[in-house]
Simulated assay, not measured.
Amino acid sequence: MTLLDHRAEGPPSAPPLLLGPSLGTSNALWDKVAPELSIAHRVVRWDLPGHGGSAAGLISAGATVGDLADLVLALADSLGIERFAYAGVSLGGAVGLHLAVHRPERLSSLAVICSSAHFNGSKPWEERAALVRREGLAGLAESADARWFTSGFTVPELVEDHRRADPEAYAACCDALAAFDLRDRLPQIAVPTLLVAGRDDPATPPAHLREIADAVPGAALVEIPGASHLAPAQCPEAVLTALRAHFDGPAGRGMEVRREVLGDAHVDRTQARQTPFTARFQDFISRYAWGEIWTDPTLSRRERSMITLTALVAHGHYDELAMHVRAARRNGLTPEEIGAVLLQTAVYCGVPAANSAFATAQRVLAEEDGAS
């Protein structure tokens, strides 16, 4: 079976997150967002039929958003992904809404970006489909910047993707948009849902996202100032912040803190060794230890490092101690302060424990000095 072309990033054992594109673009729409999301997720971004690397023959005239959703599920099945988080822009967002209504058992959470539960009726899309079938995409590509971005902003690679898309597949996607209207089904959506609107988006203005947010139980709405229709390309940091808060919660913040304290190299090695067997434990560490305890502002990171060093000495966890000596230096402790902490442990944890701790710390500090 021919599948949608896709790009996968992040640890294979991490929670899966599928990213859907807007009409006329490719998975490059997510270039400034996907790499950051892949720190905590198995990110899979896919191309529409006839766009990017996906075959045009995957879609035909009279197609529906449901047909595109079926292609996404076939891709997920081929990758062994049963349940996944999903974010999509415009047509990609419509695919997410369809899945939330018709296949809710496959979604763990949903983010709909610069999209709508309807796209202003069928006529404009029928006219665009006819235009593209008659004249191709050159003319539409010339006006892409005005439809996608605020004045003076562009992403040449995405405009080129628009120009290179297959006209018949593009027109079939227009057919899908023409027939799409899920407004009466929105109250049925039960998965956690985030709506992201570009405040300057002329194609799907904030009112369209607000309509969804008002109808979907418990849905949240974020409006991004200065963003037009392709918000992930124009305002990636704002989109990333919203998606992390929605998809990751404490685990997302925990992963940031974990990297800040332990360093990217250590966390990358841990992620690379992660397996399906250890994935839940790693998520627990990120969510609870780093996302809740280490983010509590009651104690400073310096103080937390001193407490952690003491606890590790008390229990004889010297491999962990070596890691947290490095973390203590990153958190601002001097070698003298680390030594004072270990001397304190000699009184309350015992001289033999402190002796081993000093040996471990001396080795780590010497390595740090040698690397600097």
Rank of each mutant, 00 (worst) to 15 (best):
V325P: 01
H315P: 00
A314P: 02
T310K: 04
G332P: 01
L321S: 09
G332Q: 13
V313A: 08
T308F: 01
V313T: 14
L365W: 02
P352V: 04
T308M: 11
G332Y: 12
A314E: 08
Y348R: 05
L343G: 07
L321C: 07
H315Q: 14
A311Y: 00
P352H: 09
P352T: 11
T334W: 05
A327M: 07
L333N: 08
A340L: 11
A353I: 02
R326D: 13
T310S: 15
S356W: 00
L309W: 01
T308P: 01
T345S: 10
L309V: 11
Y318T: 14
R301H: 15
Q362D: 15
V351K: 00
A328D: 08
R363T: 14
E336Y: 00
V341M: 08
E337V: 09
R363H: 12
S356G: 02
L312E: 06
H315M: 12
I307F: 09
I307P: 01
N331L: 04
R330M: 07
H324S: 07
H315C: 05
I307D: 12
H324K: 03
E337G: 05
C349V: 03
N355E: 12
Q362P: 00
G339N: 15
R330Y: 06
A327W: 02
A354H: 03
R302N: 10
G350S: 12
V341C: 12
A359D: 14
N355R: 04
T308E: 10
A357F: 06
T308S: 07
M306R: 13
E303V: 11
A327T: 08
I307A: 15
F358A: 08
A357H: 11
I307H: 08
A361I: 03
A353N: 15
R304F: 04
A357I: 05
I338G: 06
L309N: 06
S356D: 12
A311Q: 11
E337P: 01
A353K: 05
I307Q: 13
S300D: 13
N331H: 05
E320K: 01
V351P: 01
F358H: 11
P352S: 11
N355G: 00
P335E: 11
R304I: 06
V364D: 08
I338E: 12
N355P: 00
C349L: 02
A322Q: 13
P352C: 09
G339F: 04
R302F: 03
A322W: 03
E336Q: 13
A357Y: 08
L365K: 04
V347D: 13
T308I: 05
Q344E: 13
G316H: 03
E303A: 15
A328H: 05
A359N: 08
Y318L: 15
R329A: 14
L365Q: 14
G339I: 09
M323A: 14
H315I: 12
A328T: 09
